[in-house]
Amino acid sequence: MLINTVMHVVLLAAAPPLMLGLIQRTKAWLTGRKGPPLLQPYYDLYKLLRKGVVLSKTTTWIFRAGPMVTLVTVLLGGLLVPFGASAAPLHFKGDVILLIYVLALGRFFTSLAALDTGSSFEGMGAAREVTFACLSEAAIMLGLLVLIKFSGSLSLNTMLRAPEEHAFAMLPVASLMLAAVGMFIVLLAENARIPVDDPATHLELTMIHEVMVLDHSGPLLALVNYGAAVKLFVFAALFLHFVPPVPMGSPALNWAVFLAEMLGVALTIGFVESLMARLRLTHVPTLLVAASLLCGFGFILMLR
């Protein structure tokens, strides 16, 4: 139990940048480039932490608080989501709502920090962020309802791990598959990946997340980037629970399976980003509505 918790916390704190490195490597590999080293995101964070900060005259305390608040919220979210078949360190009945709302707290501060600069680019990014969140929040809620209905539990720890605990034949595979596709779209949208956003460019016209943090620099930017990596990691762990699982084994085996699955998610994201173009901004809502509908259909299939 204690080892589980330590493992969870260590992975949550240390692994997220590696996942970014894996995605970058996958993309490089698919496009025939050599690509940056796997540990490049860590080097970047280290470099940024040592740098100075440029603050805009326009900003207030919110600008500086934003990245830190966002990081704290995603870390708390990460403590609530069980990684694979192992239990999450924090759990209580109804923690599913806390997960959604604590992520909303992060969004609140990221958007305000963006508006704090008075730049229209960052205003644009904040507007898109809060707009698309309205759609993705419905999708997440409906997706989680599938598992709530299936497991009869309101705690992430039990409901998310319910697929692992049941025999494959008893699983509502159709519902889970529909919800999994929906949740994968949400994963891409919430973490600013292609086809919704492009983390690699700084072209403001189609961007969401990158454009909100244009004015952050030095350690603040390090916090932003690290927070974004943790968020991707948490969403990937959440998404994995919708994929029909490998049955539970020993604790060590569970962790191995989880890491392998996360590697799979990283590769999948890399594939998607290499094979698809970014959508036009006006088409993003359509994609997110599709995600909500998929999760909704998944839930309706549970109602028989």
């Binding site: 900060v53 603050l55 805009s56």
Partner: peptide
Amino acid sequence: MAVVNATWGC
């Protein structure tokens, strides 16, 4: 280590 300057205006 903070430098205070105007918001980046492209």
